[in-house]
Design a protein around this nucleic acid. Structure first.
Length: 423
DNA sequence: CGTCCACAGGAATGACGGGCGG
DNA sequence: CCGCCCGTCATTCCTGTGGACG
């Protein structure tokens, strides 16, 4: 193709884009960060949280609050909304009310939580190097110097506790005993209920002086939410009843995740727009569903460390055999062979077992412990994604593409005798 | 009913790179 | 520069275990 015709083609694309009426009036209204000014079906929760937090307006410390509910049930949005109004009103009064919002999954460790809060206060601390005790003392000092009422929101708090323990919560719940001029109140947000079992009773009772549950939305509630946003996001006539119904139904079947529903609608809108359609049809929603999953898996797999990739590869090979599922030992065998093909030192089985669990929680494979009686106890493992996807991602990896076209027998030498596991 | 497989998964420990304060 | 502590990843050693088989 000559340079000229490339240019023409591009101009054509841009021209068509300009001529086309966009379907979106305001794309932002469907994004995760968008804070609407009303929350359908969350009146009760809003009222409750507001009542718990209200004492802050008079400078009293609100009770600690513990919130749980699955992803996409509006916990984060509602809390942020209530706090933003609260701060607004506090600003009109005397009071120095400050809030921290920490997403524990992103922040990750006790140290980094304190670090983040210190930074938000405008104090510079080394981002590593201090002992936690030292950092905590400084943090307390800064809080006291600020002479304010602090509300600390710890979102996805279960992630923090799961790999850092509940020490940080213990410290934060008794921080008021240390502070002279400031007060701290905590809001913990958790995705799963079982989180409570990980806490010591003392911490738990202190953290959840008040407690509230966000139930998943059902399909009809999701519909209301989607309509609210769709009217903001799209021009009239772009979405119809059928589109909204389908999005809500799909999201409702996955534990009523509103975020999911909004994603579906947004991506479906983008697909429809790109196609030049004047409205969103069912096929766009269906395609959006595939697309979202595809993107997610691609993104996660692409960024996997080498050995996790090798584990995925091993499973990919094993699934080409007639076995109904694989177990840890199978994977470790193949994995070992792959390592020697790539002249890499294999990790221990203990570590591989751990990595398999991590891949499971990433949703790339399904692993569940099963007893085979006389034949031991292991994990039944299956791919949770399309094998073609595995192939596609790894064929772009310079280290892996050389082995990806091998067959199982070529890797393990003679086909290993395998116990019958069908049925 | 006990045995024993093939691991699970906890705990302790270590290597390593980063970054402090002195 | 040193000594210390951090988080992360990995190893080593370990005890625990559901249930088919004998």
């Amino acid at each position: 193709m000559s340079a000229m015709s490339v240019k023409n083609a591009l101009e054509d694309i841009f021209q068509k884009f300009l001529e086309k009426q966009s379907l979106f009036k305001n794309r932002e209204a469907l994004s995760h960060e968008y804070l609407p000014d009303s929350f359908p079906h969350r009146d009760e929760q809003i009222k409750f949280i507001a009542e718990v937090m209200a004492p802050a307006l008079r400078g009293f410390k609100p009770s600690n609050l513990f919130i749980y509910g699955k992803t996409g049930t509006g916990k984060t949005a509602v809390v942020r909304y209530v706090l933003s109004i609260l701060k607004e009103m506090a600003g009109n009064l005397f009071s120095s009310l400050k809030t921290f919002y920490i997403n524990c999954r992103l922040v990750g460790s006790e140290y980094r939580v304190y670090f983040t809060m210190c930074s938000n206060l405008g104090f510079r601390v080394p981002f590593t190097g201090l002992s936690i005790g030292e950092l905590f003392e400084r943090f307390c000092r800064y809080l006291d110097e600020s002479r304010a009422l602090f509300i600390i929101v710890l979102d996805e708090i279960d992630a923090l506790v799961k790999d850092s323990g509940d020490e940080i919560l213990y410290n934060l719940t008794r921080i008021n005993e240390i502070l002279k001029y400031s007060k701290v109140s905590l809001i913990g947000i958790s995705n799963n209920l079982k989180f409570k079992e990980l806490l010591e009773p003392k911490v738990l009772s202190s953290l959840s002086e008040e407690e509230i549950v966000f139930r998943p939305y059902n399909a009809s509630e999701l519909k209301d939410i989607l309509w609210q946003r769709a009217k903001l996001a799209f021009y009239d006539g772009v979405v119809d009843e059928g589109t909204i119904n389908l999005c809500s139904a799909l999201a409702a079947s996955e534990h009523g995740d509103a975020r999911r529903a909004l994603d579906l609608l947004r991506v479906a809108g983008e697909l429809a727009e790109r196609e030049g359609s004047d409205k969103i049809y069912e096929r766009h929603v269906r395609e959006a569903e595939r697309r979202i999953e595809y993107d997610r898996v691609m993104e996660v797999m692409k960024n996997l460390p080498l050995h996790s990739k090798l584990i995925m590869c091993s499973l990919y090979f094993l699934e080409q055999s007639s076995l109904e599922y694989s177990i840890t030992g199978d994977i470790y065998d193949v994995y070992n062979h792959l390592c020697s093909l790539l002249s890499t030192f294999p990790l221990t089985q203990r570590r591989v077992s751990g990595l398999i669990n991590e891949l499971d929680s990433l949703g790339l494979l399904n692993a569940r412990v099963t007893s085979f009686g006389r034949y031991g106890r292991s994990k039944k493992i299956k791919l949770a994604v399309e094998p073609d996807l595995v192939y596609e991602v790894f064929s772009r990896d310079s280290r892996l593409k050389s082995i990806l076209n091998l067959r199982l027998e070529e890797i393990c030498g003679s086909p290993k005798k395998r116990r019958d596991r069908t049925g």
